[in-house]
Design a protein around this nucleic acid. Structure first.
Length: 815
RNA sequence: GCCCGGGUGGCGAAAUCGGCAGACGCAACGGACUUAAAAUCCGUUAUCCGCAAGGGUGUGCGGGUUCAAUUCCCGCCCCGGGCACCA
C-alpha cells in the first residue's frame, strides 16, 4: 500500500475552516480558578499584513497558550494592535484611501492571516483600538487626568517631524531623527500642545523597576532607568547684578559652589535675548541651529558668548560673569548652570577655552588642593576655601549647603529627571480627538462626559501635510461652549496612538463594556499580565507609557495592580537573508503567505521556533525551512502507517527503547515549558524521539505503538497545531487536540538501564564503563581503577587522588 | 565615556547547578532503492597527524582558581544595543 503523504494545503485548510466555524474553542473563561493572561504585542506593518516578525512573536505566545490550555488553565491571549494609527494614515494617504476604511480592511486581512497561521486567537473579542467606542474611553481617561492635573496644555518647545507633519514625543525621536522616518531630521518648534504629566510618576516608575527584576529582561530595565534618568542635587538662585532677577541653576554638586566662576545659560534661556544686541542675537540663533544640526553627533564643539552681565553667588556674594553656552540644555534642569571648571570636565573645557578663571575647592581625602588645575577633579573629596563649609566631606556638605539655601530662601534640594512630560498632541486626523473646546470667553473647556465620544468625521480630505485635516472641517470645529453656550471651536489635535496602546490589554478583558473602560472585578481576575511578549523596540516607548497608565488607573481606584505585566519577554528579530533586519527598503522581506503556501503554516511555525532560542535574533534561511517540513512529513508517515498496523510480537528491547525515549521526551519538553522557553531544544528532542521511533519501528508491539502515537501527537500540538489535529483525528480521537490533557512522564520508564560513567585521567576522557545506578563511591573507584583501557594511561605513575561523581564520572589524578 | 547583551564547526545552534564540547537541524559527501531523476531510507561529517589502531589540538585573546572551566574570577580584544556636554 502506498504511503499517505502530507498535503499541507488540503489538511491545514480543512482544520482552518472547522476552527473558524467553532470559534468558541478558543474562548477563555475568566471565572475559572486558573486564569493566565498572555499578550503578544505585534506592531503591525502599515500595510496591515503579517510579516515574519509577527509570525515569530505569536508562535511563541501561541505555543505557550496551547501548552497552558493542555495544563488546564484558561488562557487569554490577545495580540496588540498598537500604533495602528499613524502608519495606517500614512499608508492610506499613499494609497489614496480613507484611513478608517483602510484600517478596517487591513484588520480583516490580518485576522484572516492570523487564522490561516492556525493561531489560537479568540477572534470574537475585538480590541480595535481605532474604533469610536475605544476613543470614548481614551477621552474619558483624558478628562479624568485633566481633573487630576495630569493633563495640561502649554506652549513649549516640541519636536516636529516634517515628514509626518506632526509633533512627536521625546521617546519618538531617535538620535534627532523621526522614529518612523530614519532620514528625516526632527525640527524644534514652539507650539501650544497637550501633555500628560508622566514626570509626576517618574520616581515611582524608577523605584518600581526593582520589583520587575527577574520578570523583565535586564536590558529593558536598564534602558528605562537610563531614560528616566533621576539625578539628585540642588537648585540655587544666583542674582543678576543689574536687574536683581534670580537665575536658578541646577547642580548635583552644591558643595563646589565656592568654585563657581561663571553662570552659563542655555541659548534658549529667556534671560538671554534681552541682554544681547542684534549681532549677539544672530549668533545665538546660529548656535541653536548648529546644535540642531549636530544632534546626531556625539561631541558638540563648545561655543559661548559673554552676555556682558554679572550675577552674584548667594553663598559668598561673589560677582561672576554670565555666559551663554551651546552645551547647556534648556530642556534639562533649569536651563542654566553654575560653571565650576575645577571640578567638572565640561566646565573646565569651556572655561579654559574662554579664559575664565579656575578655582579648586575640593581636595582628595588624602591629597592637597592643586596650585594650578590641569584637569577637572570630579570626584567627592573634602571641601576647602569655602568659608564656614571648609573641612566638610562632599556628601555632608551637599546636604548641609542645600539645607542652608532653603533656610535662607535662595534654593533647595531638588531632583531632576531626564524624562519629560509626554507630549501627546498630534496634528493628524487618525487618532482619538482630544475632548476639549476653545471658548473665547471661558478658555479651555472640557467636553462634558455625556457628550463623549467626540468622533472623527468621515468626510475629510486627508492630505498629510500641514495641520490636522480636522481644522479644515467646519462642522467638526464649530460648536458651542458647554459652559456659556456661545459659539466656540473644538480642539483639532488628536492623541498620540501610544495612548491607545497604553491600556488596550485592559480593555481586551472586557471589550464590550459600555459603562466604563472595563469592569474592575474582571480586571482583577486577569491582572497583572502573566506574560507580555513583544519586541525590544518598545522598551522606552510603549512599555514606559503603559506602566504610567497603569499607575494612573490605580490611583483612580480602577485597578489594584501596580504594574501591567509581571513578566516581559522580548523576542529577537527575524533577520533577512543578508543578515540585517527585514525591511521593505532593503528588499529582504520574506512574505509569510508565500511561505505558508509553499511549506505550510506548521512548517513556518516550527522553523521560527527551532532556528534559535526565542529571545535571540534569528536569520531566515529558506534552505533550512525544508528541514522542518521533512520532520513533519516523517511524523505524518510514522503515525499514519502505524495507526492500523498489527505490530510485532512483544519485543522487550524495541518497546523498551521506544517507551523510554518517549518518557524522556515528555520530560524534556515539559521542563522547557516550565523553566525557559527554548523551544528549539524542545523541538530537537521531538526529532530525536522520531529518529528513535524510526529505528525501533520494526520491532515495536501494538501495545507500544498505542502508547507512543497519541503522546507523540500531543507533544507536537503546541508547536504544529494543524498536523497535531489531523493526526489526532487519524488516531480516531475527537479534538480539539489543544484541550486534551498534557501527557505525563514516568521517571522510572525514562531511566536508562545503566549509568555510563566517564573515566578520566588527569581530566582527560580515557574510557567509559556501564555500571548500575546508585553504585557507591568506593565500588565505582575500584571499577575505574580496574578498567584496562584506562589503566594504560596511569601505568607506572602514582595515583595522587581519585575524584568520584556517582553515576557520572571518575577522575584519576596521577603524577 | 557610562550601562546592558553577545563571541562555540562550512551555517543555525546544544551543553539548564563546575563534570563526556558540538545534541538537533541545514549544507556537503557516500551507500541502498530506481532504467534515470526526485522523493525516501541508511551512513559519514570540529580540526591536525596517521593506512589504521590511536593520539594531539580546540568554545574571541592572555592569565588565575579547580582533580575538572564554554560555564567561576581578573585583565584585554571584537560585535550588537541603549544612554550621552543631563550639570
Amino acid at each position: 500500500m502506498p504511503e499517505k503523504s502530507y498535503n499541507h494545503n488540503e489538511i491545514e485548510l480543512k482544520w482552518h475552516e472547522r476552527w473558524i466555524a467553532d470559534q468558541a474553542l478558543y474562548r477563555a473563561d475568566p471565572t475559572s480558578g486558573k486564569p493566565k493572561y498572555y499578550v503578544s504585542e505585534m506592531l503591525p506593518y502599515p500595510s496591515g499584513r503579517l510579516h515574519m516578525g509577527h509570525v515569530r512573536n505569536y508562535s511563541i505566545g501561541d505555543a505557550l497558550a496551547r501548552y497552558m490550555w493542555m495544563r488546564g488553565y484558561d488562557v487569554l491571549h490577545p495580540m496588540g494592535w498598537d500604533a495602528f494609527g499613524l502608519p495606517a494614515e500614512n499608508a492610506a494617504i499613499k494609497n489614496n484611501r480613507h484611513p478608517h476604511e483602510w484600517t478596517m480592511s487591513n484588520i480583516a486581512v490580518m485576522k484572516q492571516q492570523m487564522h490561516r497561521m492556525g493561531f489560537a486567537y479568540d477572534w470574537d473579542r475585538e480590541i480595535a483600538s481605532c474604533l469610536p467606542e475605544y476613543y470614548r474611553w481614551n477621552q474619558w481617561f483624558f478628562l479624568k487626568m485633566y481633573e487630576r492635573g495630569l493633563a495640561y496644555r502649554k506652549k513649549a518647545l516640541v519636536n516636529w517631524c516634517p515628514e509626518c507633519a506632526t509633533v512627536l514625543a521625546n521617546e519618538q525621536v531617535i538620535d534627532g531623527f523621526c522614529w518612523r522616518h530614519e532620514t528625516t531630521k526632527v525640527e524644534q518648534r514652539t507650539l501650544e500642545q497637550w501633555f500628560l504629566k508622566i514626570t509626576q510618576y517618574a520616581d515611582e516608575l524608577l523605584d518600581a523597576i526593582k520589583g520587575l527584576e527577574g520578570g523583565w529582561p535586564e536590558r529593558v530595565l536598564s534602558m528605562q532607568r537610563n531614560w528616566i534618568g533621576r539625578s539628585e542635587g540642588a537648585e540655587v538662585d544666583f542674582t543678576m547684578e543689574s536687574t536683581g532677577q534670580k537665575v536658578r541653576v541646577f547642580t548635583t554638586r552644591i558643595d563646589t559652589i565656592y568654585g563657581a566662576t561663571c553662570v552659563i545659560l542655555a541659548p534658549e534661556h529667556p534671560y538671554v535675548a534681552p541682554l544681547l544686541d542684534d549681532a549677539g542675537k544672530a549668533r545665538i540663533k546660529a548656535m541653536i541651529e548648529d546644535r540642531a544640526n549636530q544632534a546626531d553627533e556625539g561631541d558638540v564643539v563648545k561655543d559661548g558668548i559673554f552676555t556682558g552681565a554679572y550675577a552674584l553667588n548667594p553663598f559668598n556674594g561673589e560677582r561672576v560673569p554670565v555666559w551663554v553656552g551651546n552645551f547647556v540644555l534648556m530642556g534639562y534642569g533649569t536651563g542654566a548652570i553654575m560653571a565650576v571648571p575645577a571640578h567638572d570636565e565640561r566646565d573646565f573645557e569651556f572655561c579654559t577655552q574662554f579664559g575664565i578663571s579656575i578655582r579648586p575647592v575640593i581636595r582628595p581625602v588624602d591629597g592637597e588642593l592643586p596650585a594650578t588645575v590641569k584637569e577637572a577633579f570630579g570626584e567627592y573629596g573634602v571641601v576647602e576655601n569655602s568659608g564656614e563649609w571648609s573641612g566638610l566631606a562632599s556628601a555632608d556638605a551637599r546636604k548641609k549647603m542645600a539645607g542652608f539655601a532653603k533656610e535662607r530662601g535662595f534654593g533647595e534640594a531638588a531632583i531632576t529627571f531626564r524624562i519629560k512630560d509626554w507630549g501627546i498632541s498630534r496634528q493628524r486626523y487618525w487618532g482619538t480627538p482630544i475632548p476639549f473646546i476653545h471658548c473665547a470667553k471661558c478658555g479651555i473647556v472640557p467636553v462634558p462626559e455625556i457628550d463623549l465620544p467626540v468622533v472623527l468625521p468621515l468626510d475629510v480630505k486627508i492630505t498629510g501635510k500641514g495641520r490636522s485635516p480636522l481644522a479644515d472641517h467646519p462642522s467638526f470645529v464649530n460648536t458651542t461652549c458647554p459652559r456659556c453656550g456661545e459659539p466656540a471651536q473644538r480642539e483639532t489635535d488628536t492623541m498620540d496612538t501610544f495612548v491607545d496602546s497604553s491600556w488596550y490589554f485592559y480593555r481586551y478583558c472586557d471589550p464590550k463594556n459600555v459603562n466604563g473602560p472595563f469592569d474592575s472585578a474582571t480586571i482583577a481576575k486577569w491582572f497583572p499580565i502573566d506574560q507580555y511578549i513583544g519586541g525590544v523596540t518598545h522598551a522606552i516607548l510603549h512599555l514606559i507609557y503603559s506602566r504610567f497608565w497603569t499607575k494612573v488607573m490605580r490611583d483612580m481606584g480602577l485597578i489594584t495592580n501596580d504594574e501591567p505585566a509581571a513578566n516581559l519577554f522580548t523576542q529577537g528579530m527575524v533577520l533577512g537573508t543578508d543578515g540585517s533586519a527585514m525591511s521593505k527598503s532593503k528588499g529582504n522581506v520574506v512574505d509569510p503567505e508565500e511561505m505558508i503556501g509553499k511549506y505550510g503554516a506548521d512548517t513556518c511555525r516550527l522553523f521560527v521556533l527551532f532556528a534559535a532560542p526565542p529571545e535571540k535574533d534569528m536569520p531566515w534561511i529558506e534552505a533550512s525551512v525544508g528541514g522542518q517540513r521533512k520532520f513533519i512529513d516523517r511524523v505524518y508517515r510514522f503515525v499514519t502507517r502505524n495507526v492500523d498496523r498489527e505490530g510485532a510480537a512483544p519485543n522487550a528491547d524495541a518497546d523498551k527503547k521506544a517507551i523510554r525515549k518517549l518518557n524522556q521526551t515528555i520530560r524534556k519538553v515539559t521542563q522547557d515549558f516550565s523553566n525557559r522557553w527554548h523551544f528549539n531544544t524542545s523541538i530537537a528532542a521531538l526529532m530525536e524521539l522520531v529518529n528513535e521511533l524510526y529505528a525501533a519501528e520494526e520491532g515495536m508491539s501494538r501495545q507500544a505503538i498505542d502508547e507512543v502515537l497519541p503522546k507523540l501527537v500531543l507533544l507536537l500540538a503546541p508547536f504544529a497545531p494543524y498536523i497535531a489535529e489531523e493526526l489526532w483525528s487519524e488516531l480516531g480521537r475527537t479534538g480539539p487536540v489543544f484541550r486534551q490533557p498534557w501527557p505525563e512522564f514516568d521517571e522510572e520508564l525514562a531511566k536508562e538501564d545503566a549509568a555510563e560513567v566517564v573515566l578520566q585521567v588527569n581530566g582527560k576522557v580515557r574510557g567509559r564503563i556501564l555500571v548500575p545506578f546508585g553504585l557507591d563511591k568506593g565500588e565505582l573507584e575500584k571499577l575505574a581503577l580496574a578498567d584496562p583501557k584506562t589503566q594504560a594511561f596511569f601505568e607506572g605513575k602514582s595515583v595522587v587522588k581519585v575524584v568520584v561523581v556517582p553515576d557520572k564520572l571518575v577522575n584519576i589524578v596521577v603524577k
